[in-house]
């Protein structure tokens, strides 16, 4: 190979194969993304699993728990749902994460060579565009920060507990207004079937995670990307599981737990 042939080959390597691979990956990601983003498609995948678990659960109730407890369970459905909600949520998330991991692994093993070429490509690009590495790194760390967190009773909108990194306006009033806005949006625009997931304003976002009798609202500054969201969801599910809310829950106690949650960011 002479020099110009080598150059030609390099070009091909850099652009063509790479593009094909990238396209394939993109397709896979798109279809996965669609599955995750479209409730019907997601439930198609996830429902069988839940159903199966539920079947097993239901089958086991009489043998494991005995009829009296099964009876008690049906009588206090709300409480049961409250207890199961974080667990089921986690199960679904685990399943999706598993799928994504598998896909990533597959892609990784297939395209290791390509990736090394991409790395070179990136370096070349960086060299010609004159963007410093530091700048690139900086742009990647507009990291999301949890500013405030509220646990709010559904319906009444009463504040159950809250924690904040900065002094803020009255939490009780925020809790009420958030609840009013949330229920307004839910019955005006999304038919009351689904629930509001987030409210965005300027540089912050209020992320909302629903539980049966209450919801948790988190004020976040910075960029809330999928992986951060994911991590946050896990934390909230964990929190809900570890801190069951009942008549005896005190505001102080729960707020303290929320503070640790914020501090561990």
């Amino acid at each position: 190979m002479n020099d110009s042939e080598k150059l030609q080959r390099l070009k091909e390597l850099l652009l063509d194969e790479d593009r094909d691979f990238a396209q394939k990956i993109l397709h896979k990601l798109e279809s996965l993304d669609q599955t995750i983003q479209t409730p019907e498609k997601l439930s198609e995948k996830v429902n069988p699993i839940i159903d199966k678990k539920l079947d097993v659960f239901v089958e086991e109730i009489p043998t494991k728990l005995g009829p009296t407890i099964a009876d008690a369970l049906t009588k206090s459905q709300d409480k049961v749902v409250e207890a199961l909600f974080p667990i089921i949520g986690k199960m679904i998330k685990k399943y999706i994460q598993q799928e994504i991991n598998q896909l990533t692994e597959k892609i990784n093993s297939q395209v290791q060579d390509t990736f090394s070429i991409q790395k070179w490509q990136r370096k070349i690009k960086a060299f010609f565009s004159g963007v410093s590495e530091q700048e690139i790194i900086l742009s990647e760390i507009n990291k999301a920060k949890l500013e405030q967190i509220f646990v709010i009773e559904k319906g009444s909108g009463l504040l159950i507990a809250s924690a904040s990194n900065s002094e803020s306006i009255d939490e009780d009033m925020i809790a009420g207004m958030l609840t009013a806005i949330k229920s307004f949006v839910e019955d005006a625009f999304i038919n009351g079937q689904q629930s509001l997931e987030s409210i965005q304003y300027e540089l912050s976002e209020i992320y909302i995670q629903n539980f049966t009798s209450y919801y948790i609202a988190v004020v976040i500054s910075g960029e809330l990307n999928t992986s951060v969201k994911n991590e946050l969801e896990n934390k909230l599910f964990d929190f809900a599981q570890k801190n069951p809310i009942s008549e005896t829950t005190t505001k102080e106690e729960l707020s303290l737990q929320l503070k640790t949650l914020l501090a561990n960011e």
Binding site: G157, L158, A180
Partner: peptide, 10 residues
């Protein structure tokens, strides 16, 4: 009146 305004009222 929107039911959500009334729910949970003492």
């Amino acid at each position: 009146v929107r039911a959500s305004y009334l729910i949970g009222t003492s």
